[in-house]
């Protein structure tokens, strides 16, 4: 077994930025004829390579538009890189946006099974974890009402409870630690810290050097889609602070 949980090898990601999305046939042919189909190209990631050892907690820092979220999506398997390859060993729990798979006409209970299945968990496993999920989400009797009546906080609490019900090998966090009110925030942070103690590999996107220092032992910095520095969290945070100050 390799000691690396994630291997990102010369990954580049190209987006075609057409002014507006061409999604009707007339427009397509008009543009084809007038040769305006050559979109503006935009490299969201350029030739990025790094490896994450098992149990490492890596912070991903960078300004807006640096390609942080794109990188997470590539690692999560949502986006396929234009060039290069990504190897991931183990179960990935992406917490990029919580509750994206919910159906608003379904009740909270039905959504637990639907969202769980979307993440690839078997039904029996979800039945075992059901009570735990409901308890953690603090939804109580609302679990049997349709989700369209939920507040946004209730939805993300349930999303968080389902996503962390399983013990993943690799946890991908995109600033989702801020869920719900102060008490729930503390509870969810505690849960993530517990997972980390169990040796979960973490990929964590944040603007806050405080949190990166608190959670991560390593970090990388992205600028305009390029990896400009990587190393231990402390020194990366000081580089990043300097970058902010000199901007």
């Amino acid at each position: 077994m390799s000691k690396y949980a994630v291997e990102v090898d010369h990954v580049s990601m190209l987006f075609n930025m057409s002014g507006e999305k061409v999604d009707n046939i007339k427009e397509y042919f008009v543009r084809l004829l007038t040769r305006k189909l050559n979109y503006e190209e935009f490299w969201a990631l350029r030739d990025i390579s790094f490896k994450i050892e098992k149990g490492d907690r890596v912070g991903v820092m960078g300004f807006n538009g640096a390609g942080k979220s794109t990188l997470l999506k590539v690692v999560a398997g949502v986006l396929k890189p234009t060039m290069g390859s990504v190897k991931v060993r183990g179960v990935v729990a992406p917490m990029i946006e919580l509750g994206a798979g919910f159906d608003m006409n379904y009740t909270g209970k039905e959504n637990i099974f639907l969202y769980g299945a979307t993440m690839g968990y078997p039904r029996r496993f979800l039945e075992e974890k059901y009570d735990e999920i409901v308890e953690f989400s603090e939804l109580g009797k609302f679990i049997n009402s349709p989700m369209k009546n939920y507040s946004s906080g209730m939805k993300s609490r349930l999303g968080f409870a389902i996503a962390t019900a399983v013990k993943p090998d690799i946890l991908i966090l995109d600033e989702v630690l801020s869920v719900g009110d102060a008490a729930f925030k503390e509870k969810s942070e505690q849960r993530i810290l517990d997972l980390m103690d169990d040796g979960v590999t973490v990929l964590f996107v944040s603007h806050s050097t405080e949190r990166v220092k608190k959670i991560c032992n390593k970090a990388i910095i992205l600028t305009k889609g390029q990896l400009i520095a990587s190393g231990d969290a402390e020194s990366m945070c000081s580089i990043y602070t300097e970058m902010i100050n000199s901007r």
Binding site: D103, N105, Y106, F113, L114, A117, T118
Partner: peptide
């Protein structure tokens, strides 16, 4: 094989919600 549960869930959702 892994996602057969998802197929189950989606199929029963489509049928359940159709006339809810």
């Amino acid at each position: 094989f892994k996602y057969r549960y998802l197929i189950n869930e989606l199929v029963s959702k489509n049928i359940k919600l159709q006339y809810r």
